[in-house]
Design a protein around this nucleic acid. Sequence first.
DNA 1: CTATAATAGTGTCTGAAAGACACGAACGCC
DNA 2: GGCGTTCGTGTCTTTCAGACACTATTATAG
Lengths: 220, 220
Amino acid sequence: MPIRVTVDIVIFTIQSGDLQVLLVRRGIEPYKGRWAIPGGFVLEQESLEQAALRELREETGVTDVYLEQLYSFGDPKRDPRGRTVTVAWFALVDAERALQAGTDAAEARWWSVQHRPPLAFDHASILDYALERLRNKLEYTTVGFQLLPDKFTLGDLQKVYEAILGRALDKRNFRRKIGLLGILKPLDELRSEGGRPARLHRFSARKFEKLKDKGILFPF
Amino acid sequence: MPIRVTVDIVIFTIQSGDLQVLLVRRGIEPYKGRWAIPGGFVLEQESLEQAALRELREETGVTDVYLEQLYSFGDPKRDPRGRTVTVAWFALVDAERALQAGTDAAEARWWSVQHRPPLAFDHASILDYALERLRNKLEYTTVGFQLLPDKFTLGDLQKVYEAILGRALDKRNFRRKIGLLGILKPLDELRSEGGRPARLHRFSARKFEKLKDKGILFPF
DNA sequence: CTATAATAGTGTCTGAAAGACACGAACGCC
DNA sequence: GGCGTTCGTGTCTTTCAGACACTATTATAG
């Protein structure tokens, strides 16, 4: 049963309030010239997660990001060259690191998930599935914070949620819910952007762990 | 990269208020004599889901059940014979069909998830993961109904929830929530079991679809 | 220097859902 | 006919979610 195993990684980021995904242009057949989700073969001596991390590093230069296994796709005809099973993952990188990712040697660039090009193989299904998972996870986990740099304003955070959910949120209700979680540490630092300066905050992993220990999950 | 791909299926049922899992005893090395989650190799021309359904049928004779992909496990050392990646699934069968499953040729039997034996390979991790997923899904989907036969009483349904969640639920609150969903059709049929007879109900897939169309999920 | 445009930050009310809680009803069995 | 067993039902209180509008602080343009 010579089945080849690959990993594909759907990498999301947020750029100026728009949810984007990193795609690479294929240089070889099949689907030459088509855009595809970055990925590659699993090596003999590495775990699936190690393979995903390696591909992520190789294709984007990015490391130390949120990474989560998504689903495995194994339709016998999904690759015309022969039987492959792919273990799909999704990754979240913040806007600062995202810049470095898009500028690598290989032809890779960020695409708005709204206006993405046609994709190779069954990658459209994989991307759709990743989007669905991201939206769901947003509501009961802290994945939203993974898309922001270390310090951010509450407005930044709200824009992340709005970009992923694709709808506007009420500012006061949003801030109340965030506040109730008690996992943000306000900093003595402001940032100015053409209006009243906004206070910067930092995600407090310490407080978050305490909540998890108590079995409290996220009420978004 | 000769990686072999398998599927393993964690099959749950409920027997007299106890959550049980189907295990098979291994007849060959490695782990000969140890209990394991049923599974097998993915064939050249079948999808992952078809492989899972085939194994389910071969090992338990059971068909037409709830089946959902769980996670893929691919640690390089998970099988001492060589590199394998397994795509794990979980399945739910109702008590009536479960009886037929346990009595097949191969040495297979139901084990309480509370008192399970040591398992082969990394199957303990897989089972734990399946349990976690099942508990989570119970709270916002209708998987609980999959563990019951066509007709059931509200008491039966509550026992399913209690067995999976591992704690007692308030009868009145439980029934109110079920009632609000409006997805059960009360039948003109009672069942007697040593007390006041209980009304039988049937899961109404029609009403359920209407709710899904409206984007209403399950508030458990 | 004053006016204006832009973004930040803040509290109340109302409706819905969740959890705690106790008793009468219908049957089988002795 | 009494007792044991399971079925079936309603209220109150608390918590959470959503709708809703104004003042505060800065930069910039006139």
